[in-house]
């Protein structure tokens, strides 16, 4: 079931298109830096380091995509998960195979998170390759000023990509829940995207700071802590903890909604 679900997601042309689009981000950023020469100290964290060390392009890719493009792609896949099956009509055939509804939800959720992790890895890999082609490579200077060897740096980039992917778990579950509410996949995708955008906006409003620790987007950048010596785990733990709570609540909501509802599509 899970294998079939994963194959269903990754064999689809749309998924490959999303991955290709995400892979393009570091390439564009890399080319821009290559031709402009420097970032003059503006832009996201790590950006000013790229021209000295191409490895950092992978991190720039993760920073840039992690806040917007990756969650957008996750919104597309998650919003489509159940609503898309309902719209095509395959949902009724899946359930009469039979597939338990709970099992279907869990497989869908795992497949969405797997997509997020793969997408983040693709961004990082694309950044590494582009960085290696356009810029020199070398020891990685961490945020705390120490340097680490190149292999160690690459390993940490892979870990960072995994963390970025897992950070999408909360959003994935919310998208899954939204997707059980409708037979219109586009609506579910848009609503899911709206959820993380609202969350990002709320993060920026000082009056709502009391809510900040609980927002699914607050700790999305925690992966940068992997580039400290020693690695600071608190942010990442908080991030994954927040995702687990959101994932659980939204997952339960999806189950409450979908577990017994009539399938009329």
């Amino acid at each position: 079931m899970l294998r079939a679900e994963l194959a269903g997601v990754f064999r689809r042309r749309r998924t490959l298109g999303l991955l290709a689009g995400l892979a393009g981000l570091p390439v564009i950023a890399g080319l821009a830096l290559y031709f402009s020469g420097s970032s003059h100290g503006h832009g996201p964290v790590f950006l000013d380091q790229v021209t000295h060390n191409g490895v950092f392009l992978a991190l720039v890719g993760l920073v840039v995509s992690g806040q917007l493009f990756l969650p957008l792609a996750v919104s597309v896949v998650a919003g489509d998960s159940i609503a898309g099956e309902a719209a095509v009509g395959t949902l009724r055939y899946i359930l009469t195979r039979p597939v338990r509804r709970r099992r279907l939800l869990v497989s869908k959720l795992v497949a969405i998170v797997a997509f997020a992790v793969v997408a983040a890895l693709v961004v990082a890999a694309s950044g590494l390759v582009t960085g290696a082609v356009l810029f020199p490579l070398g020891r990685v200077t961490t945020l705390s000023g120490f340097t680490i060897g190149l292999p160690q740096g690459v390993a940490r980039i892979a870990a960072a990509a995994a963390v970025v992917g897992l950070s999408m778990a909360g959003l994935a579950a919310v998208g899954l829940f939204v997707s059980t509410l409708t037979e219109a996949p586009m609506g579910a995708m848009a609503a899911t995207a709206a959820v993380f955008i609202v969350s990002l906006v709320m993060e920026g409003i000082p009056q709502l700071s009391i809510l900040e620790p609980y927002l699914m987007t607050t700790h999305w950048m925690a992966f940068t802590d992997l580039f400290r010596v020693p690695i600071s785990w608190t942010g990442i733990e908080r991030d994954l903890g927040t995702q687990a709570v959101w994932g659980l609540l939204a997952g339960l909501a999806a189950w409450a909604r979908f577990g017994t509802s009539d399938v009329t599509s």
Binding site: E5, V88, G89, Y93, T96, R97, V99
Partner: peptide, 28 residues
């Protein structure tokens, strides 16, 4: 039970055979 409910419904982007294989592999 084998069923056809309210007309055919398959993934447009898969072949007929792949659709049936996928459907069959969903049920453990």
């Amino acid at each position: 039970v084998g069923a056809v409910v309210e007309g055919p419904a398959f993934y447009p982007w898969l072949s007929g055979r792949d659709n049936l294989v996928r459907m069959d592999s969903l049920a453990g």
